[in-house]
């Protein structure tokens, strides 16, 4: 067995997903404690060899890619088979996977097949100074408590991490080892048939990538227009708490929190959001948090850098005007 860390990267339609480089960035940080060991990136797909250099530039020492027409679209069995073949050959000590709807389908299947532990949606990954084990910390009970999980007797130690939780390194031109790994697929490996794929056209951008988020909750009611105006004037996006999504005011894609997305913007405006742990679990890492809420006892004020007790619908229009004048 090696002491290497392997990152299972994700591409869709030949486009590298950001969570992959975020995890390579994290693996680089972890590998510092394991001198002489490598960060290995695994990439699977069809005609994806061209993406390998990008992974090297983001910090991978070695890229192993499996390029095969059978991997054109993500399918559980073909991807599990390819990943298990590479894991057997590479024998890493740790495996990191993005907790996307693909990673969360693939990683448990791999872990069950090779009989090892898997810890989902980790928010902190550290190496134990004494044992060298991976300490995988994740929220549990709807984000109400944190649990640190270890995998003492099975290897590799596997963890999934949500997009936006770790930070990618800035790419630099680097040289690394790039390996074309062949996997033989049998016809029965393709055990489902994709009949059609429909892209979801989004009204707003991906909130996990936004630098500024203006987020609304129950206290906003059905009218998100003032939030949208503030987001527009600041060049940000709008987001929402579960209450607004459940009420049908906001789309599920906009939901921040334990059951939604984890975001880490520069600025987060929590408007009319009470601040249940369920919500704050997804946004408390924001660099600067404003909370506006009528209820002076709302728990959102505990995580906010600046709390304003007041009415969102009265404050936001004035704020938008003021910022417009500023520009």
């Amino acid at each position: 067995m090696t002491e290497n860390i392997l990152v299972i990267c994700e591409q869709r339609d030949g486009k590298l997903q950001k969570v992959s480089t975020e995890l390579i960035g994290k693996a680089r940080q972890l590998i510092e404690k394991k001198q002489g060991q490598k960060v290995v990136a695994l990439l699977m797909g069809d005609k994806i060899a061209g993406l390998a250099q990008d992974l090297v530039n983001h910090g991978a020492d070695k890229v192993v890619y499996v390029d095969n027409p059978a991997l054109k679209d993500y399918m559980t069995e073909t991807y599990t088979k390819a990943a298990c073949a590479v894991l057997k050959s590479e024998n890493p000590d740790m495996v990191l996977v993005g907790a996307s709807s693909i990673g969360r389908d693939l990683a448990p299947r791999i872990a069950a097949r090779i009989k090892t532990g898997l810890t989902a949606d980790c928010t902190t990954l550290e190496i134990d100074d004494e044992t060298g084990e991976l300490l995988m910390t994740r929220p549990a009970f709807g984000g109400n408590i944190m649990a640190t999980i270890i995998c003492p007797d099975h290897r590799p130690q596997m963890a999934t991490v949500r997009p936006g939780v770790m930070v990618a390194l800035n790419p630099e031109q680097k040289t690394g080892e790039i390996v074309d790994f062949a996997v033989d697929f049998a016809p029965e490996d393709t055990n489902v048939e994709i009949l059609e794929t429909t892209m979801i056209t989004k009204e707003s951008k991906d909130i996990t990538q936004a630098a500024i988020l203006v987020s609304g909750g129950r206290g906003v009611g059905a009218n998100f227009a003032p939030l949208k105006e503030l987001a527009d004037v600041l060049g940000g996006e709008i987001a929402a708490s579960r209450a607004s999504v459940d009420a049908g005011t906001a789309h599920k894609d906009m939901q921040v929190g334990q059951t939604g997305k984890t975001v880490r913007p520069e600025v987060y405006f929590a408007c009319g959001i009470s601040g249940a742990v369920q919500h704050t679990a997804g946004m408390e890492e924001a660099a600067l948090i404003f909370a506006i809420n009528k209820d002076t006892t709302a728990p959102i004020f505990d995580v906010a850098d600046v709390g304003i007790v007041g009415d969102v619908h009265k404050i936001l229009p004035k704020l938008v005007n003021r910022i417009r004048n500023e520009k």
């Binding site: 872990a111 090892t116 532990g117 408590i145 649990a147 270890i150 995998c151 007797d153 679990a281 995580v303």
Partner: peptide, 12 residues
């Protein structure tokens, strides 16, 4: 394969 090493309240 996995064990809970510790659990703790969230740092506020």
């Amino acid at each position: 394969p996995t064990k809970v090493k510790k659990s703790f309240p969230k740092q506020v």
